[in-house]
Design a protein around this nucleic acid. Structure first.
Lengths: 210, 210
DNA sequence: GCGCTACAGTAACATTGGTTACACAGGCAT
DNA sequence: ATGCCTGTGTAACCAATGTTACTGTAGCGC
């Protein structure tokens, strides 16, 4: 685990802190689709993402879903941070988008490290910063873009994370994450296919040229 | 200024920190409508809000606006925080919603205080927490509510902040902040008036019963 | 008073997106 | 093969929202 830590966080944390993380953290490996956190959960540990991707979702009272953003290698979940500090319930759901490896840090250490390590404080602030910016991006998309543009942006992001040029989702999956209906997504995807940007197959979408 | 500090932040900060804030902070009083920050500005100081309210707005590349949330007494601007730490440009615009009093803290102190004062760290984390939650609220509204519900929510929030039961805005003003058109707002307001919830006058809306 | 401008009301229409309904195909279990 | 379930394509329709255009009116400066 110490090697994974050094590779992914060595440029951020000094050795003393890396060692402390190594002491108290636990390694965790989860498969694609694994639910890491549910809305309403109390949070007892903070994740450092070593590899893979995690999608963060919001749900309203009627059960309607919306994708907020993805976490990637080197990220942590700022929502978790706030929950840890304030001892409040999670406002979001976290699902492994791909197989993922992470290190879970019990929240007890955080206060101490914030005092002791400047690099830890910077990491935490930086995380908040990134997360706020992701949220702004999300707001921009919902507020200012039409559905076809949102879909395009979604596909680009998704294919970037998957790291091959195929997206293995059904139209229904996509509709959930963009909070619209399957028919709408099928309609718009067909339009994109006619434009030559993608190729549609059963349960998968090949991205040709974006 | 020290008295205003004690009244508004005395329950959060110990005396030593209050004194430091008093030393380096500068008092600022701004009228309604005053632009405190523009998109693209570099930020050199962090505001503590003593009285009044500040609205935080987002704008897209076409100049379309959207209200994100309001800051009130005791709040600080988390966006400013992140900009201070990361030395990046502001992503948002900040306008005084009412006459407001604030204390501006130069960013140099922040790093030092984060190390020295646990209460300061807590305040900063708490601010991020609050701002992330406000952003989630905003996302919920845009993504899950119809325009009539968003308008209602907007009116309730606005009247709460104004602290009398009248909103002094034109339909066009409201349309900007909700990112829709004047005609749509007029239409929906008329419907609310017919339901007996509000009373419309030139450039002002009386909230009767929500 | 007159003229000007900002604000509001409303109709008619266009567009986007959501809904319903149904046909058809791929793939799996039997 | 047969049947079944899931996923996709498509048409027809509806509701919500955005757009254009025109009206009337309040308030202000002169």
């Amino acid at each position: 685990m110490i090697q994974a830590l050094k590779n992914n966080f060595g440029h951020l944390f000094e050795d003393a802190l890396l060692n402390e993380i190594n002491q108290v953290g636990t390694f965790k490996e989860v498969p694609e689709g694994f639910k890491l956190m549910e809305i309403g959960d109390y949070v007892k540990a903070m994740p450092l993402l070593i590899s893979g991707a995690i999608k963060i979702l919001r749900e309203d009272t009627d059960g309607d879903e919306l994708l907020l953003y993805f976490l990637e290698k080197g990220d942590t979940c700022a929502m978790t941070l706030t929950c840890c500090v304030a001892h409040t319930k999670s406002e979001i759901r976290a699902i492994a988008e791909t197989d993922a490896k992470l290190i879970m840090i019990p929240i007890q250490q955080m206060e101490e490290w914030s005092e002791k390590y400047k690099s830890w404080r910077h990491f935490v602030f930086e995380s908040y910063h990134n997360r706020l910016n992701e949220m702004l991006e999300t707001i921009d998309s919902i507020a200012f873009l039409k559905m076809d543009e949102r879909l395009l942006k979604y596909l680009v992001e998704k294919v970037r994370i998957s790291k091959d040029n195929t997206i293995h989702s059904t139209h229904q999956d996509i509709a959930y994450e963009l909070h619209t209906s399957r028919v709408v997504i099928s309609r718009l995807l067909k339009k994109l296919e006619k434009l030559g940007k993608i190729e549609l197959n059963r349960s998968s979408i090949l991205i040709k040229d974006m």
